[in-house]
């Protein structure tokens, strides 16, 4: 690649992104503009922004590489990303979430839960969880972006990482959520174009869909023995039922990431940004196409790369990449795609990193200002400025974590974040949207149990994270406290059901207290489902407890 041409393209690209952030800035007049983009975002912008936020550089490179090792079984995650991550998130949850957030005048995910259950504790605790644990997830995306800039633009890793952090922080601070969503949507379009070309080129390179799959099926004897021992049965087969590989595939990737997206604050709050249910229905169409070409492409291209490498070099993908699965996608793309595509793919990966980081630090900023400080009555003035300070604190924390956390810990940040969010937030969110008799105590107990149990599981039971953190080893002298299969079962797998059961039991035990939040329930559900619409209320407070 011609480096000066590439740098020129990146500068033009960043110019367009900066102009979009400036456009967001010009349209941001009120706190509602800054926090929920004025609740009048175009459905195409919403769907592209949602998708681009969900898909980071590591999702394309990391998941594509993982699929090259594990095989097509990961397609179940692509299936869930479309059905749950798009259809359920927009057309089912989103419709209620949007209406309820408008009824209760809630501008963030934790504040929505807090107002719905009439509990400051829930809002502050949820905001605190985001503010404490999200920076680690942000830092892994930042690191991915920094390494990527180092490899492609030949800039120093430290400069690349800091440059990325500063650029994104500027977009968020100046443009608010409008700036974030406009830049996301442009980034999403670049990603969509790049991934569509990659998918069709890949199947074309191996002679088509059926021929490609048949060729890959015939390569079963090429699987490395260590993977066979772990349960690998071929790239076009699921791993052996109950094997370590099967548990990893099902519990972490499919369940954790597939279901976990529903409870991701930066994703769930996207439904609050559109004008009405019509926009959400339209977003389903755009989101369904976008997600297919993101996760579908990564999980189809990854396995197929084995066939291409075997035919051209006599080796499977992981052998060509010398054991580093993160190198499989870049090497494969370098081999099969024309040179001009490499420029486009560079912008695709840069887009994936920027769009994810911007949404994460926006949510961190609002967790700091809206969910924590405002609910603790620290300040009622200057909501936008407080949020901007929160953005700065969030991005500085992410940069510091990128340097001080060991690589082994940071690599687990995505699964950790998705897992604790699903276990902590999902039951309370479903209850908020569908269960009028859910009580404040039930929701609070569920959130605390979900976060507590999943964090305990990651620190002491699940081998990947427990070994990386080393806490179990330091305290009890062994890597994990329980034997297999607990070592390979994602904590979400048990923390989420237990959190849901606690929610039900505590709500039932405290069922007489529902009358105390009757007004919040009535207002929250107004116009949701079958109840007739009531005018939205402004400045609805919460009580402590």
């Amino acid at each position: 690649m011609n480096l000066s041409l590439l740098i020129g393209m990146v500068i033009v690209y960043l110019g367009v992104m900066s102009w979009l952030a400036f456009l967001g800035n010009r349209q941001t007049r009120t706190a509602e503009d800054y926090l929920v983009a004025g609740r009048n975002v175009h459905p195409a912008v919403m769907a592209l922004s949602y998708g681009a936020t969900m898909i980071s550089t590591s999702a394309i490179i990391g998941f594509g590489g993982a699929a090259a090792v594990f095989g097509f079984g990961l397609l179940w995650l692509a299936f869930l990303n479309i059905v749950v991550g798009i259809f359920v998130a927009f057309a089912i949850f989103g419709v209620r979430l949007r209406k309820m957030s408008q009824n209760l005048d809630a501008t963030t995910f934790p504040t929505l839960l807090g107002k719905r259950y009439h509990s400051k504790f829930i809002a502050v605790f949820s905001g605190l969880m985001i503010f404490l644990f999200m920076p680690a997830y942000t830092s892994i995306v930042l690191i991915g972006g920094g390494r990527f800039l180092q490899e492609t633009l030949k800039v120093d890793y430290n400069i690349g990482l800091l440059l990325l952090a500063v650029i994104v922080a500027l977009y968020v601070i100046t443009g608010g959520l409008k700036g974030v969503m406009y830049t996301d949507a442009f980034a999403g379009l670049v990603m969509l174009f790049g991934m569509i070309l990659l998918l069709f080129s890949t199947y074309y390179a191996v002679g088509g869909v059926v021929d490609g799959h048949q060729g890959l099926s015939a390569m079963k004897d090429q699987i490395p023995p260590p993977l066979v021992e772990q349960g690998h049965q071929g790239w076009t087969s699921m791993p052996a039922l109950g094997s370590p590989l099967w548990w990893t595939l099902i519990s972490t990737l499919v369940m954790g990431v597939g279901i976990g997206v529903l409870a991701q604050p930066q994703l769930a709050m996207r439904s609050m940004t559109v004008r009405g249910t019509r926009s959400l229905y339209r977003s389903v169409l755009i989101g369904g196409v976008f997600m297919f070409f993101m996760t579908g492409t990564a999980f189809m291209v990854g396995p197929i790369s084995n066939l291409y490498f075997h035919e051209t070099q006599g080796k499977i993908a992981i052998a060509v990449a010398e054991g580093n699965s993160d190198l499989i996608m870049p090497i494969f793309i370098n081999r099969i795609m024309p040179e001009w595509f490499l420029y486009l793919f560079t912008l695709t990966l840069l887009s994936a990193a920027i769009s994810t980081i911007s949404s994460l630090i926006h949510v961190q900023g609002t967790a700091f200002s809206e969910d924590i400080l405002r609910n603790l009555n620290v300040s009622r003035e200057g909501r936008m400025n407080l949020s901007r300070i929160g953005v700065l604190v969030g991005i500085v924390a992410a940069v510091i974590l990128a340097y001080i956390l060991p690589g082994s810990v940071i690599a687990q940040a995505t699964a950790f974040w998705f897992g604790i969010c699903a276990a902590g937030f999902l039951p309370a969110l479903v209850g908020a949207l569908y269960w009028r008799n859910a009580t404040q105590a039930g929701a609070a107990a569920s959130i605390v149990t979900g976060f507590g149990l999943s964090i305990f599981g990651f620190l002491f039971l699940h081998q990947k994270e427990a070994a990386a953190f080393g806490l179990a080893k330091a305290l009890f002298g062994k890597e994990t406290l329980l034997p297999y299969p607990w070592t390979h079962v994602d904590p979400l797998f048990y923390a989420l059901p237990i959190s849901a059961v606690v929610f039900g039991i505590v709500s039932w035990l405290t069922r007489t207290s529902v009358s105390q939040i009757q007004e919040q329930v009535r207002q929250g559900f107004a116009g949701v489902g079958t109840v007739s619409a009531l005018p939205p209320i402004k400045g609805q407070g919460m009580k402590k407890g």
Binding site: G71, F72, G73, L75, W76, A78, F79, I82, V83, I86, F87, A91, V209, V210, D211, G212, H213, Q214, G215, L216, S217, K220, Q233, G234, T236, S237, M238, R275, G276, R278, S279, Y281, R282, S283, V284, L285, I286, G287, G288, V289, M291, F292, G296, F299, M300
Partner: peptide
């Protein structure tokens, strides 16, 4: 089917394509 060895993988591949088509049809519209 579709050249896959395991029928559950065939379903996953087809399911992913059909889920995307379903979203298109469903969306197809204040």
């Amino acid at each position: 089917m579709l050249g896959m060895e395991d029928w559950t993988i065939t379903i996953a591949w087809l399911g992913t394509v059909l889920a995307s088509l379903f979203c298109i049809v469903y969306g197809a519209w204040d």
